[in-house]
Design a protein around this nucleic acid. Structure first.
Length: 259
DNA sequence: ATTGTGGCCTGCCCGC
DNA sequence: TGCGGGCAGGCCACAA
């Protein structure tokens, strides 16, 4: 479940390769390169280039090197490692072990350092010159007017809108459940039905929740997280939590204080 | 255009 | 002890 918080931890880790020169590209999994490029194309584009920046938009980590930008996506079980060091050791729903066969992509640098993606489920990908125009504004720097725009006119459930990367980029299932719970908003509410004070509250909550959970260590550190299970109760008021499928995702919420 | 659904992919956990 | 089924969700293709 790499969501925006894990992606940002990966970006921070990837800053460690800025200034290094790529001498080899490893792409042992033919499923991993997307967008019409293969292992050879990745090598042609990247070998000999020096990494100049590590950026992030939503859940996507971007490496610049003077040529086409390299985009790294992590699906739900992808981990980034640099020189054998992981940004996140234990990924919820990720592998409990580490297995060399889970390495899906790697960059080898002059001097022997290495950046790679470990992804048991193979749901992540790498892409050259990604088109990010379909992504909405980044959730962490989201302005109030941008959130208003993202929710405006939506007849579908609030949760589906917040999960839609084209509306707001970066939030995943766990973070959306957490911010809806903290905001006292039902995930089932039609997105466009929120009153202005509710949008403001949601906006504040997104910002504060991301800052706090980043300090805590990731998207599994929400107050609701441990209660997302059969028989779970709301840590705020003790009511039994409801489990619904919303936006195609398992959703846990409190019918007592979320409306 | 918007919204919903199913499939991809595989480790892990539970029940038998 | 081994095995099979279900589950997890980011992302994309496709359908209504």
């Amino acid at each position: 479940m790499p969501e925006i918080l894990e992606a940002d931890a990966y970006r921070r880790l990837a800053e460690g390769v800025v200034g290094r020169t790529v001498v080899a590209v490893e792409a042992p999994d033919p499923l991993y390169p997307r967008g019409g490029v293969d292992a050879g194309g990745l090598a042609d584009a990247l070998v000999g280039r020096r990494i100049t920046a590590a950026r992030r938009h939503g859940k996507v980590v971007l490496l610049d090197s003077g040529g086409p930008t390299l985009a790294l996506r992590f699906g739900m079980t992808g981990r980034l490692l640099v020189d054998g060091r992981a940004a996140i050791e234990y990924l919820e729903w990720g592998g409990r072990r580490s297995d060399p066969s889970w390495v899906r992509f790697g960059l080898v640098f002059r001097g022997g350092g290495r950046l790679w993606i470990d992804d048991p489920r193979r749901l992540g990908s790498v892409e050259l010159a990604p088109d990010l125009s379909g992504l909405g504004p980044d959730a962490w720097s989201l302005r109030l007017d941008e959130l208003r725009g993202a929710l405006a006119g939506g007849g579908g459930p609030l949760k589906a809108r917040l999960l839609d990367q084209g509306r707001v980029a970066g939030l995943g299932n766990l973070l959306v459940d957490e911010v809806a719970w903290r905001s006292g908003l039902s995930p089932l509410r039609p997105a466009g039905s929120l009153a202005d004070d509710e949008v403001r509250r949601l906006h504040r909550t997104i910002r504060r929740t991301l800052d706090q959970m980043d300090r805590r260590g990731g998207s599994h550190t929400g107050d609701l997280f441990d209660h997302r299970r059969a028989g779970g109760t709301c840590p705020k008021d003790g009511a039994p939590l409801r489990r619904d499928t919303v936006g195609g995702r398992t959703s846990w919420w409190c019918p007592e204080h979320q409306s």
